[in-house]
Simulated assay, not measured.
Amino acid sequence: MSHTAHIRSHRKPRRSASTIAMRAGVAGGVLSTLAVAGASGSANAAEPVTQTLELPTLTADMAAQVAESAAATQQAAANYQLQAERDAAAAKAAKQAKADLAEAKKKAAAKKAAQEAARQEAAERASRNAERATLSASTSTSTSTSTSTATGSAADIVNFVRAQVGDAYVLGSSGPSSWDCSGLVQAAFKQVGIDLPRVSQSQSTAGSQVSLDNLLPGDILYWGGAGSAYHVAVYVGDGMFVGAQNSSTGVAEKPLSYDPPTGAVRVL
């Protein structure tokens, strides 16, 4: 007997072929199951599930309705644009009509004012002509009463204005070498200590009104209305006057018939 015969063997007991086969079958089934599950999971992960929606099929009737709706929309847009253009044209026409009316009123008012001014000017001219005709007639019949010789202060006034004959006429001037009508008359009366107003309108009312058929040397002649005279001069006797007439004649001595005055005032 061997000396190791009493020692148990440390080898594992051998399994039977049937046990091994059974265990292998179980393991294979588990692995197959895991493989199938894994494959299914991989397939699901790689290909997400999508849902397909079916769209309605565009039939001939639906296409016709869509085309009709598009045509109606286009026509509505064209009508809207046409109406907007008509409204803009109407507004522009109304604005132009308003401007034309205002311009026509303005022109009518200007024409009326011009006609009124012309009428007034014609009336004043006719009145002046009538007055001059009357005065000319009365002057021609009263020359004998207007031939007196100046004396005293009147002589000084007459001598002064005659000394300025030939001087220039300058509007607004008061000497010593140029004058306007009222400047000459004012300077003449200043020689005898009388202060007259500067303008012809005031000088025409500075003294007592006298008739043109009863003039005396030194009387102030005026043209236009008393208080609204536009020209003055000094009567120097013998049917003559001296005045600063205009830029063409300057200071000149003229007969009353040259330009018959409207009236006269006596200051002395």
Results as ranks from 00 to 15, higher is better:
I220M: 03
A78V: 14
A93N: 06
V242S: 02
Q65F: 03
S40G: 15
R132G: 05
S257C: 08
A72Y: 03
S248G: 04
V267I: 15
D195A: 12
Q115R: 07
L256K: 11
I220K: 04
V26P: 00
A130P: 01
T59Q: 01
Q164F: 11
R14C: 08
K12A: 15
T19Y: 07
A150M: 05
S204M: 05
P176S: 14
A27L: 15
K254C: 04
K12D: 13
I7C: 02
R23P: 01
A110Q: 09
V66P: 01
L212E: 04
E47I: 06
S211V: 03
Q209P: 00
A76Q: 15
A63M: 08
G193K: 08
R125M: 06
L184G: 07
D156F: 00
A97E: 14
R23F: 12
E85T: 08
Q201D: 03
V265K: 00
N44A: 14
R162G: 06
T249P: 00
Y169H: 12
A109H: 00
S40W: 14
A89L: 11
A88P: 02
A94F: 09
A123Q: 09
A110F: 00
T52W: 06
L215G: 06
G175Q: 10
K95P: 01
T4A: 13
A46H: 10
A117H: 05
Y80G: 15
T262D: 13
A126I: 02
D61T: 04
S202Q: 13
V199K: 00
Q209Y: 04
L216K: 14
D213K: 12
A114K: 12
V265Y: 01
S127M: 10
E121I: 00
E103R: 14
A168Q: 12
K106G: 14
L58F: 02
T151Y: 05
A84G: 08
V265S: 02
V232W: 08
R119K: 09
Y230K: 04
Q83F: 04
K12H: 13
L53K: 03
D180L: 00
S2T: 07
V30I: 14
S144T: 14
H10S: 14
Q209K: 10
S16T: 15
S146D: 12
A130R: 10
G175K: 07
A110R: 00
E85R: 07
S16H: 09
K107P: 03
Q209G: 04
S40P: 02
V165E: 15
L82W: 02
E54F: 06
G25K: 01
R23M: 12
S177W: 02
L268K: 00
N159M: 07
G207D: 07
T149K: 14
A233E: 11
A72Q: 15
V66Q: 08
S9Y: 03
Y169I: 12
D100H: 02
Q191W: 03
R128N: 10
Q245T: 10
Q245S: 09
T134I: 06
S182L: 04
M1Q: 08
L216A: 12
A5N: 05
P217R: 05
S146H: 11
A137I: 01
E85H: 05
T59V: 03
A229G: 05
S144E: 14
P255W: 12
G166E: 10
Q203P: 03
G218M: 06
V232L: 06
A99Y: 01
T4Q: 11
G207C: 04
K254G: 01
A110C: 00
S248L: 03
F241A: 04
I157M: 09
